[in-house]
Amino acid sequence: MRELNQPIFDRLADLREGTLFKLTSAVTEDNLLQWFREQISPMEHMVPAIMKCLEKLQVGWGEVGVSGNENTIHSACLLLAENLSEIVKLEERLCFSILPEEAEKLRDLMQNQAEGAIAELQRLPDELDQFVINAIEAEINGVDGSKELAITFELNDSWSDEVNRLFES
């Protein structure tokens, strides 16, 4: 998973550091609403798709004490990497689109949501490494090695209110 995701995280770091640019066109006030709909739509599908990938990873990992399925784990990791890549593409579109000044706050709000999802997934390889270490230690010590991992994707409580307020202004 780490090898699949690291280039994606590196690209995101490049984007944030300003060492990456994309050619874009300006979004006019006339097509601003449509442009935002096109950006919000992938965000609505992002979390359910990632959650299904994580469920697939969990199934592949297997029950405690039972060997996992390498093919299912690999497939889930490939899907997660593909989804992460799409999130970074969304970040790029948000970052490089030339918007009317009054739309900047809405873009910032959308970027913060995508960044939150990425941050949660960025910690996943280290968490899974720790799972393996705990399982090995538990087996050596003859104790239960089960552990839970929580991945949280949150929208700010005020997300809808802020979007509506920004569209009204």
Results as ranks from 00 to 15, higher is better:
residue 13 A to M: 06
residue 13 A to K: 10
residue 16 R to A: 14
residue 18 G to W: 04
residue 18 G to Q: 10
residue 18 G to D: 06
residue 19 T to N: 15
residue 22 K to H: 15
residue 22 K to F: 12
residue 23 L to C: 13
residue 23 L to Q: 14
residue 24 T to C: 05
residue 24 T to F: 11
residue 25 S to M: 07
residue 29 E to D: 15
residue 30 D to T: 09
residue 31 N to H: 08
residue 35 W to C: 10
residue 36 F to P: 00
residue 37 R to F: 03
residue 43 M to C: 12
residue 43 M to T: 08
residue 46 M to S: 11
residue 47 V to G: 07
residue 48 P to I: 11
residue 48 P to T: 13
residue 49 A to S: 15
residue 52 K to P: 01
residue 56 K to W: 06
residue 56 K to H: 09
residue 57 L to I: 12
residue 57 L to F: 04
residue 58 Q to T: 15
residue 59 V to Y: 02
residue 60 G to C: 03
residue 63 E to P: 03
residue 64 V to W: 10
residue 64 V to R: 07
residue 65 G to Q: 01
residue 65 G to W: 07
residue 67 S to A: 14
residue 69 N to G: 07
residue 70 E to M: 14
residue 72 T to R: 04
residue 73 I to N: 00
residue 74 H to R: 09
residue 75 S to A: 13
residue 78 L to E: 12
residue 78 L to W: 10
residue 79 L to Y: 09
residue 79 L to A: 15
residue 79 L to K: 15
residue 79 L to R: 13
residue 81 A to Y: 01
residue 82 E to A: 14
residue 83 N to C: 12
residue 83 N to D: 09
residue 84 L to A: 01
residue 85 S to T: 10
residue 88 V to T: 03
residue 91 E to Y: 02
residue 93 R to P: 03
residue 95 C to T: 06
residue 95 C to V: 05
residue 96 F to W: 09
residue 97 S to G: 11
residue 97 S to N: 08
residue 97 S to P: 13
residue 97 S to A: 13
residue 98 I to A: 07
residue 102 E to D: 09
residue 103 A to Q: 02
residue 103 A to K: 06
residue 105 K to E: 14
residue 108 D to Y: 07
residue 112 N to W: 03
residue 112 N to V: 09
residue 116 G to D: 00
residue 118 I to E: 03
residue 118 I to F: 03
residue 118 I to N: 00
residue 119 A to W: 09
residue 120 E to C: 10
residue 120 E to G: 12
residue 121 L to K: 00
residue 121 L to Y: 00
residue 121 L to A: 02
residue 126 D to Q: 08
residue 126 D to C: 07
residue 126 D to N: 15
residue 127 E to P: 01
residue 130 Q to E: 05
residue 130 Q to C: 05
residue 131 F to P: 00
residue 131 F to R: 14
residue 133 I to C: 04
residue 134 N to K: 04
residue 135 A to K: 02
residue 136 I to S: 07
residue 137 E to A: 02
residue 137 E to C: 01
residue 137 E to L: 07
residue 141 N to T: 11
residue 143 V to T: 11
residue 146 S to L: 12
residue 146 S to G: 08
residue 148 E to G: 09
residue 148 E to C: 03
residue 148 E to H: 03
residue 149 L to H: 10
residue 150 A to T: 11
residue 150 A to R: 03
residue 150 A to W: 02
